[in-house]
Design a protein around this nucleic acid. Structure first.
Lengths: 264, 264
DNA sequence: CGCCTGCTTGACCTCGCTCAAGGCCCGTGG
DNA sequence: CCACGGGCCTTGAGCGAGGTCAAGCAGGCG
């Protein structure tokens, strides 16, 4: 199942595009990145990409689609602890933690690029700035977890849902997948329930409330936020925790280009 | 308030003890660690050690006491996203993330050791294994956050509380602060409410239930688990997510010694 | 002694869960 | 082309876990 559709190759590494969104690479860094062998694979919706208890020898970057990290508890209920969008590396942690403590599952169809651990380790040893950037990335993941703990622990259902929508919109924007205040977000209400820790029925009712207030629409796999300021206010959303990079518009555009380049 | 009671000095670095619990240091690593200047400070209970929005130029290791990372939402409710025990570095993330997204507050009286970022950066550049170990540490933090999301999102009140108790017991054991199945845990029921996302009243009732089942006692700042297996079963606790290091008993004892050495 | 903080208990209420049924959309097969 | 079936969304009714408010209690400390 974790078998690949094509052999490892040396096409442009998507890590390169991801890192260029953050800082300018040296020639040496660029070369090192290009030497990391890649293996692409496509997973159908619902397939498990990595399983709790696994001891992977490689990690992957999500290139396309939406995936989720999730835990199942003894009663059989499932909690999604993180949603992944293109550019994320959901199991990079296995580079340092031997055994996975959660499943990673494809929500929609997902295209991913696997990289062997030995290659990533070599990359990090040779390029401390890249290592630092990946470390930083995992710190941002942690910041998102903190916000989710707060979201689930403290906010009422409609606010909780609104908060998730705000987060996803900004993260999608950061990788250029939005168009205005719309972005692709093809998840079912059942999945939103696993994300927010609430029942599908209550997700539905909360959603109706947000719709009724003209704050969002959410249909056909597209999320649209009609009034960002009011939704952010309503949900108590403050983007600080996403630690999005400040960068001049020109640089942002350049790296967006590099990104879509790598993706095709 | 973030002023120090004594000047930076070069006494044994508690990082050294913490790292020795994980792997054996080379002479060079040891020397580098000893060159990181330390500044100790004591915070009274309830004091804020670091504040949301801060841009710290140094990070600290908790040497003594219990601290908490917390977020306040617009309604004024507070969620604790992480409890810290000696050996933790609650704001190490500021090494890579410019601005803090949460407060760090002393729950009990806390003794901490500050280290300047420039010194830590230098340490990491010179010693890739130390950098990797710190990175790994932040990945374990993230794993704990994932479990908390799951705990708060999916478990009923008594199970949720039991789960927190199991986690704290194991973390305390890992640094040798337990005696048998008892460990110091001087937090109020109100704090447990902020940890679990439930009201103080309901913490109290859940606690009574756990006591009634002869699973735990929790009084005078000491947590005791009377029947580990039954509590773990009850709370659905699986320690995998703590990623505790396997190590031979001898080594564990040695590093416990080093730890208590550094602490006095 | 009196106060303050934290624990305990009761009464009431509500947010969100469960169970259940009906509706819509879309893909598949006759 | 239409019938059928399966997801997924929607809605209703009833219930229960946990919140809120309020009061009483116990222990430590000035």
């Amino acid at each position: 199942m974790i078998d690949s559709t094509q052999a490892y190759n040396h096409s442009i590494n998507p890590l390169l595009a991801m890192l260029e969104r953050v800082f300018d690479l040296t020639e040496h860094e660029r070369l090192s990145l290009e030497q990391v062998p890649l293996r692409q694979h496509v997973f159908a919706a619902e397939q498990t990409i990595a399983r709790e208890g696994d001891r992977p020898t490689r990690s992957f970057m999500l290139l396309d689609g939406i995936a989720a990290t999730a835990k199942v508890i003894s009663t059989g209920k499932r909690q999604i602890t993180n949603l992944h969008i293109p550019g994320d590396m959901p199991d990079l942690l296995s580079l340092h933690l031997e055994v996975l403590d959660s499943d990673v599952r494809a929500i929609t169809q997902c295209r991913v690029a696997f990289m062997e651990h030995w290659a990533l380790r070599h990359l990090c040893e040779e390029n401390p700035r890249i290592a630092a950037a990946l470390w930083k990335n995992s710190l941002i993941d942690a910041a998102i977890y903190r916000e989710w703990v707060t979201n689930i622990g403290q906010r009422q259902a409609p606010q909780r849902l609104g908060h998730v929508f705000c987060e996803m919109m900004l993260r999608m924007k950061a990788i250029g997948l939005n168009s205005g205040m719309s972005c692709p977000f093809a998840v079912s209400q059942a999945v939103l329930g696993e994300v927010t820790g609430m029942s599908t029925v209550h997700v539905n009712r909360s959603l109706m409330e947000l719709r009724g207030e003209q704050l969002v629409s959410f249909e056909k796999g597209v999320l649209t936020i009609h009034d960002w300021d009011r939704l952010a206010e309503f949900a108590g959303f403050d983007e600080t925790y996403l630690h999005l990079p400040y960068k001049p518009a020109a640089a942002a555009a350049r790296s967006r280009q590099a990104q879509s380049h790598a993706a095709h």
